[in-house]
Each structure stands twice: as C-alpha cells, then as structure tokens.
C-alpha cells in the first residue's frame, strides 16, 4: 500500500510544467523614496538618568540611489540628549534594482541619555524625531507619438499624439502624472516643433526642497535660503522649498525646458513644465508619424521624518 502511495505522490509532484522563469521586477513604479521605521524595541519606556540606543531602519524603496543623504535627531534636550557624534550623520543607500527589488537598507543608531526628571514629576512623554534630507531623482521613459502631419492628411497613422497618463509613479516620491503632446508649425522655418507638457506631483510623505539646500533643510540655520532660494538661481523671491529641476530629451537631442528648468511643486497639487524641441532639431512635415522615446529626469532634494513619543519614567 505504501508503495502505491509513494508512486502516486511521485507522479503528482514530479510532473511540473517546466522550470519557473525568473521575472524581473519593474522598479520604476510606486511613489516611495526613503522609508523610515523605528525598531520595535525602541518603543518602550525608559527610566530617568539612563542611557538607551535609538535604532531606526532606513530603506530605499525608490528606484534612485541616495548619495550623501543627511540625518539629524531632534529631541527635547531638557530630558533626552543624543550623544554628540550620533546626533547627526550622513548615509548612502542603493535604490531598488531588478536584481535587488527590496532596495538598499541601513540602520542608524544613536546613543541617547534620558536625563533626571524634575523632583515632583513621575513620568514624562517627550518626542524623538528623526529627520532625513537626501537628494533624489525621478526618471521616466515615455513612448511618445511624433506626428508631423498636423493637417491630418494621413488617415492611417501608426499612432496618435494623445495625452499619456503615467499613474502609479516611477519609483520616487515625485511622480510624473501625465505627458501632453503638442505639435505646431514653426513660423520662421515652417517646420514642425514637438512640444511636451509634463505634469508632475509630490506623492510622497515628505516635502521637496532644492537639492542644493539639503544642509539647510537638516540644519538650524539658513532659513533665508529656503525662503528665497538664493543658492540656486539668485532670484529674489523664489523659494527653496518644493523646487525641482526638470530635464527631458528625445533620441534626437535634449529638449528646451526653459531658461530656468526649476519649478515649484506645491504639495498635493500638480505642477507642469513645458519642454520643446530646440530650433536645430525641428522636424520636416515629410518626417511623417512615428513613435519615439521621451526621457524625463527630475532632480530634487527630499525631506522626510519619523517621530514617536518616548516615555521617561521616574525610579520609584
């Protein structure tokens, strides 16, 4: 009986329909960048006048690498103090790749001291905040339809230059939402100028800052730079907050996204930038209709934080 049973099991489990093929993960999806998570062991009460280690996990869930990200611990210094050399620091993290879909991972540790509580108080809740400021970028490659037949003479085109929706993100907190395609005749040359309206939005949990102001974003001084953004453009009145710089290119060459390719990306709202083909890359009408690849890159700094209430208790 046992023999038959073994034979049956062999037949059932031996006949698999071929080897499973490894599927590569598309890492250019989602709206996450750096994800922060306190270790559960930290979320317990501590006693006054004692040391404890704060551990936080940093994981890059986005598609871009983080180089020279900065962090700082913020505490209520009357009661909790992070040891000097661990109160701030720098980190690097690889982004997600098809071969490492979980992204780069790191643990930041800080030695902290819970100070002596006042004499009459029995316990105290105090916030512990971890603030990270890091450079990030959003890359997207979009199939666009180049259509020089603006008179619509050819009814049988290979594609139509409709608006392209890119919902779901590109593996970064700043996401390209859609690309509109506009084709117009250049009055001087009579050639066709492809123009693209790129709509984007901050879909992450943090806020965007000019990538050159990361030190300021994670430091105590330099608020004026954030207010005026002087270190980027020198233009008075242009804020350093929510600022991203955008570049786009077609196989034929880079697009012209304006003199100042930095735009303000107000949280929760769409922002748009117009990029168009340079004068030297205009298309003849005879070029017809064909598909091409539009490459878009957005550079910015990103600030994200995580906090929790630490309870300090008195020794009774």
């Amino acid at each position: 009986m046992k023999k038959y049973l073994l034979f049956l099991l062999l037949v059932l489990f031996a006949c698999q329909p071929g080897l499973r093929q490894t599927q590569l993960v598309d890492v250019h999806t989602g709206t996450s960048g750096l994800e922060l998570k306190f270790f559960d062991t930290n979320l317990v009460d501590v006693f006054e006048s004692s040391y404890f280690d704060m551990l936080i996990e940093l994981r890059n869930h986005g598609a871009a690498n983080i180089n020279e990200g900065k962090y700082v611990w913020i505490t209520e210094e009357n009661y909790v103090v992070a040891e000097g050399r661990t109160s701030k620091g720098v980190f690097d993290l690889q982004g997600r790749t098809p071969y490492d879909p979980s992204g780069g991972f790191s643990v930041v540790e800080s030695r902290m001291t819970a100070k002596l509580l006042p004499q009459l108080i029995k316990g105290y809740d105090t916030p512990v905040i971890f603030l990270a400021c890091y450079p990030y970028k959003t890359n997207a490659t979009v199939h666009v339809c180049i259509d020089t037949d603006i008179q619509q003479a050819n009814p049988r085109k290979v594609c139509k230059p409709d608006t392209i929706n890119l919902r779901g993100g590109q593996g970064a907190p700043v996401a390209i939402e859609s690309v509109e395609q506009i084709f117009s005749r250049d009055q001087a040359t009579g050639k066709i100028r492809p123009t693209f309206v790129i709509n984007m939005r901050n879909l992450g949990n943090g806020h965007v800052v000019d990538s050159s102001l990361l030190d300021v974003a994670c430091g105590s001084q330099g608020g004026l730079s954030l207010l005026r953004g002087t270190s980027v453009t020198g233009e008075i009145g242009s804020a350093g907050f929510n600022k991203v710089s955008v570049s786009a290119s077609l196989p034929s060459g880079d697009l012209d996204c304006g003199v100042n390719p930095a735009i303000l990306l107000e949280k929760g709202k769409d922002a748009a930038i117009i990029c168009r083909v340079n004068d030297n890359a205009l298309l003849d009408v005879s070029a017809g209709t064909f598909t091409s690849l539009l490459s878009i890159k957005i550079n910015y700094g990103y600030v994200t934080s995580k906090s929790f209430m630490l309870t300090i208790k008195k020794f009774i």
Partner: peptide
C-alpha cells in the same frame, strides 16, 4: 538665537 535653536531645524525647548 543660535543657542536657542541648537543645531536642528526645529528646537524643542522647555519652560518650567
């Protein structure tokens, strides 16, 4: 101001 703000963008201070 530098003493009051410390070295972080947000300072948490106490009044007793």
């Amino acid at each position: 101001a530098a003493v009051l703000l410390g070295n972080a963008p947000l300072a948490i201070r106490n009044i007793e």
